[in-house]
Simulated assay, not measured.
Amino acid sequence: MMKVIATFGFVGHLRPAPGTWGSAAAVVLAVAAYELGAWWLVPAGFVLATLAGFIAVPRVIAGSANKDPSEIVIDEVTGQWLAMCFTVIPLARHGVSILDAWPAWLAPFLLFRLFDIWKPWLVGRADRRGDAAGVMLDDLWAGLFAGIVSMILAGVYHGVVEPML
């Protein structure tokens, strides 16, 4: 069961780029939940996946020389859902379809992947821990940064660019 959680239902075994597959699966599920009227499943899923990840990841990597195997993608899922919360919650408050506001899912996806791969500042520091907590924490930091930058970009667009159009 721990491997099922850590690989997010075996999505982590998809190749190439299992982390991107994990992030994409998270976005698809978030968009589907939102469009079905269950936007609250995104923040709830984030919390549950984070807790499950902090339980499953240490058990899966215990005794392994590789402390961050590529098939573990629950960390990408948690980070991606955290980033999505920054757009899903405001869209739900305004009753806007996430499909009509497509940058609301695309920007967090692209920014999360950027921060997860680039590993700036706290993302890189967490990744360098080399332990199970670091596996989870680097993606949580990447998700937080992606969410914040998504909100900044939305603010610039809606506050500066859109009024000029």
Rank of each mutant, 00 (worst) to 15 (best):
T7W: 14
F10Q: 08
V11I: 14
V11N: 02
R15K: 12
A17D: 03
S23L: 09
A26T: 01
V27Q: 00
L41A: 15
V42D: 02
P43M: 00
L48W: 09
A49Y: 06
I55D: 15
A62I: 13
A62R: 14
S64K: 14
N66Y: 04
K67T: 15
E71R: 15
I72F: 00
V73C: 11
V73W: 03
V73N: 07
D75V: 06
V77L: 11
W81C: 07
L82N: 13
T87N: 01
T87S: 04
V88E: 10
P90C: 09
A92S: 10
R93A: 12
G95I: 11
S97F: 10
D100C: 05
A104Q: 00
P108F: 02
L110G: 06
L111M: 08
R113L: 04
F115S: 04
F115C: 01
I117F: 06
W118Q: 05
P120F: 07
V123G: 03
V123R: 02
G124V: 05
A126H: 00
D127K: 12
A133Q: 14
L140Q: 04
A142N: 05
G143K: 12
G143S: 04
V149E: 08
A154L: 11
A154N: 09
G155I: 13
Y157C: 05
Y157N: 09
P163L: 13
